[in-house]
């Protein structure tokens, strides 16, 4: 209990401890502490600030680079997509053109065939009509000849052969 000292006021403390010690006792602790601090700084620089700082910077670079690459890839893919879109549109247009062409062609062909068929039919009908006509005239001629012959015979019978010639 005797050596217990309570100093609530620093001034008292300074007054009590006279020759040695005290609150503001500056001695060789100061430069050695400074030296110790500098050594600690060097050690921490080698152990902490340099390697971890480098790691942080490298990570920053990596992230920035990755972002840039990703942006480039995105732009590229967007350009490709646009190009494909264009090509697709072109191809679709071509295919429609081809379909239209084919349709027109088919129509043309069918029209010409129908016309041919009609022409043929007309020609055959004409031919048949001509034949009928020819046969008719032939029949008429035969008929006329027979009528002549018959009328001659009738005349002969009625007037006698001498009068006829």
């Amino acid at each position: 209990m005797t050596y217990w000292t309570i100093f609530l006021v620093t001034a008292e403390a300074a007054a009590e401890t006279t020759a040695e010690g005290g609150l503001f006792d500056i001695d060789a602790t100061l430069p050695l502490m400074a030296l110790q601090f500098l050594i600690l700084m060097a050690v921490l620089n080698a152990l902490l600030y340099k390697p971890l700082g480098k790691a942080i910077d490298q990570r920053g670079d990596y992230v920035r680079r990755s972002l840039k690459e990703a942006r480039e890839v995105k732009e590229k893919s967007e350009a490709l997509a646009a190009q494909y879109e264009n090509e697709l549109r072109e191809v679709r247009r071509q295919s429609q053109q081809i379909i239209a062409d084919a349709k027109a062609e088919a129509e043309k062909i069918s029209a010409s065939k129908i016309q041919n068929a009609q022409q043929e039919v007309a020609a055959q009908r004409q031919k048949a009509a001509d034949e009928i006509e020819a046969q008719k005239t032939e029949a008429m001629q035969t008929l006329e000849q027979q009528v002549d012959t018959l009328s001659d015979q009738i005349l002969e019978k009625l007037l006698g052969a001498e009068l006829v010639n």
């Binding site: 006792d25 502490m33 400074a34 601090f37």
Partner: peptide, 12 residues
Amino acid sequence: NDINTTVALALL
């Protein structure tokens, strides 16, 4: 809490 330490740091 020793004045030597703080003075050393301040002087540095």
